[in-house]
Design a protein around this nucleic acid. Sequence first.
DNA 1: TCGACATATCTAGTATTCTTGAAATATGGA
DNA 2: TCCATATTTCAAGAATACTAGATATGTCGA
Lengths: 116, 116
Amino acid sequence: MDIETSLFAFSALSQKTRLDVFRLLVKAGPEGMFAGDIADALGVRQNTMSTNLNILLRAKLIRNEREGRAIRYRADFDGIRGLLSFLVEDCCGGNPEHCAPLLDTLVCDCWETEND
Amino acid sequence: MDIETSLFAFSALSQKTRLDVFRLLVKAGPEGMFAGDIADALGVRQNTMSTNLNILLRAKLIRNEREGRAIRYRADFDGIRGLLSFLVEDCCGGNPEHCAPLLDTLVCDCWETEND
DNA sequence: TCGACATATCTAGTATTCTTGAAATATGGA
DNA sequence: TCCATATTTCAAGAATACTAGATATGTCGA
C-alpha cells in the first residue's frame, strides 16, 4: 500500500454514500450485493451509485464480479487491512515484535482472506 | 463513534499533509512532537500546519497538550480504534462472537489506552 | 511591562469534488 | 437481430476544501 492509494482510499470513505456502501457490504458478508440492490437499499440514484462504487473499487475497498447482467459487489478485507497496516506502520519508531501483529486479526472469521 | 465524526475523520486522513502528520505521530509514539517540529519535519508552513492539526484534533485522531509556549501533539489511538470499530461494525450481519473482538488488539503495546 | 517566540485565526482566491440528466455499453431472451 | 434490463460513462453547474498572507493570541524571560 502506497501513499497515493491510501489517500484515495480515505477520500473514498469520507463521503456519506460511499461510507454507507462499504459498511453495508461489510454487514452483507462474503455473499455481497448487486449494484442495483445497493442503490435501492441506500435510496441513491443508479448512476450516482455506479460512480461511487467505481471510486470504492479503485480504492481497493470493494471488489466486483459480473453475474449475468448484474454485477455483484463485496467488501475487500485484504484491501482495508493493507490500508490500516499502512496507517499505523512503524508504530512507536518500529518495534515489530509489539506493533506488527496488531492488525493480523482484522478479518472476521467468516471471511476468507486470499493472500498472505 | 457516529457517522458524522467518522466522515470527518476519513476526510481528515484523505489529505497528504494530514496523513503524513498522523503517521509521523504514530511513529513518534507516546512522546509525541511539538507543533513547530511537525511543521519543520514535513516542510509545511506554520499556519497551514496549524490549520491541519486542528482538523486532525476535531476528528479525534490526535490530541494536544500545552507545555510552556509550545504545544505537544500525540496520535489518539482510542480515537482511531473507535473509527475502525465503526467501519467494520456488524460484520457479516453481526456475529459478535467472531467479529467484535477483531479490533481489540489495535493498540501498540507501548501505548497506554485511557478508557474502554 | 515589554519583546520574542510558538501557535492560532481570519479571509479570499484557486482548485477539487459531488450530483445528475443524457447517452453509451454489455448481457440475455425471443 | 431486436428489445429490455443492468450498469457505466460523459459533461457541466453547484458546493466544498486547500493554501497562504496578514494578523491575533498566549507564554516566557528580562
